[in-house]
Design a protein around this nucleic acid. Structure first.
Lengths: 239, 239
DNA sequence: TGGCCTTTTTAACAGCACTATTACAATGTG
DNA sequence: CACATTGTAATAGTGCTGTTAAAAAGGCCA
């Protein structure tokens, strides 16, 4: 997989650092240091970029605005937002503006690379399912499996078109993380890193507690989609 | 997960503290207090170490130089840089020299442990993906023989596309170990080392017991793939 | 030498005590 | 109210051992 990435990032040292890691992966990168430059660079030659990483706090034009304008030019471009604090508010705005995933700062270089790979994988899969998924209504769901639909922009989960009520942020993120790769087992540590963030050092068992609550709420609409894999972790499976 | 870590750190109190935390995780640690010693220790026996944590400010030979020399000996060894102040400059140089991740001082022991775990996980995942570069659809199987498919990411075993039910961790590991090299005989000692870990002192016959259970579960889907090699051990064969 | 029986070695099986892991409930905090 | 944590109960998995069954080896005799 060879990628060209547009990194929108005002902290030059971060950009340089990531540049080296991308190079290690065999990817190339352009950097825009403010919002205006980002939009300009992308507008000039949209097709050359495979993906955009987008800092939210930018000079001149903030990340949300950049995302909107970029999406106007090329709606299918994958965008990963880099949010300073993991503020729910910002995430929702970001998703609304067209972001596909977010990574909260500070992040480890490898974490970002992992997300990029995951996103690319997801997009390839989506492409294959394009026929089934397209248009009809204006409803956009980020994850669609046999029974479940998840909308990140609305923070909504539907099971057989029934709303799952009162999902909390952590529960939503947990479900979203696992549902992106159905049947794949996630260790508690993986979930901690993915949902709680790079620099969070909580207890494994905290995950259990949230899984329990999530299961309770899913059961209310008849969903039984989170399996325990003994000695390993959890997985999503609704087949 | 059992690790041996080479910690390169001139501040002895830091090293001691981390030593205790590593011990709690069941990991062992060697300490080098300056750059020269670090390179020497690593060069003497590179394979014993699973990971290096590397302070950047070192007597005699700085961390960057150590990283380069270590990478020259063994390019795949994971390195985590410990940067004294979060000086971006240093981080960048460190990565250039071959570091995989960084933690800025002062760091919490749990933070470093979390980073180590995350790094190990990624390395394992990357290794697997290299082995499994085939696989087109979302289905990824790490082992595929005539009748059996094994997916470590899903912890699933299929025999002629039938699920083997209720596989426990030990059983899965046993089967996975043997199925990787069909027809090769594994002694009980080899299996103990591979599945239980190299410093586990258990009875040979414990292996038998698990093989029995595994066979039972495999029989339920009509699989008869584990042969006894009298006086030697067991082997996987489904041809 | 080759067949047959006995002895010895090795593996299969079954059950139990123990451990590890997970689910659940309750609490404290912001 | 969401969350993190902790204690406890429930559950699943593991390790071991006594016993039984099977295989190999050795001895005996035709």
């Amino acid at each position: 997989m060879k990628l060209k990435i547009l990194m929108v990032e005002d902290d030059q040292s971060v950009a340089e650092m990531m540049g080296m890691f991308f190079e290690k992966e065999g990817w190339s990168m352009d950097v825009a240091t403010d919002g205006e430059q980002a939009v300009k660079m992308f507008a000039e030659n949209p097709d050359q970029y495979d993906l955009i990483t987008l800092d939210l706090n930018l000079p001149k034009k903030d990340g949300i605005e950049v995302a909107k304008e970029v999406c106007a030019i090329s709606p299918s471009i994958p965008i990963i937002m880099l949010t300073a604090r993991s503020s729910e508010e910002e995430q929702i705005q970001g998703f609304n503006a067209g972001a596909d995933d977010y990574v909260s700062k500070p992040f480890s270089p490898l974490a970002l690379i992992a997300r990029i790979k995951a996103l690319q994988r997801r997009i390839r899969i989506d492409d294959k399912q394009e026929q089934t998924k397209t248009a009809e209504s204006g409803e956009k769901f980020d994850v669609v499996t046999n029974h479940i639909k998840i909308s990140t922009s609305r923070r909504e989960v539907l099971y057989d078109n029934k709303h799952v009520q009162n999902i909390t942020p952590k529960e939503f993120d947990l479900l979203y993380t696992m549902a992106q790769k159905p049947k794949q087992v996630f260790s508690r540590e993986q979930l901690l890193e993915s949902v709680w963030g790079y620099n969070y050092y909580g207890e494994d068992r905290t995950v259990d507690a949230h899984i329990k609550k999530l299961r309770q709420k899913l059961e209310k609409v008849g969903a039984n989609v989170i399996q325990t894999v003994w000695g390993v972790g959890y997985k999503f499976d609704d087949s």
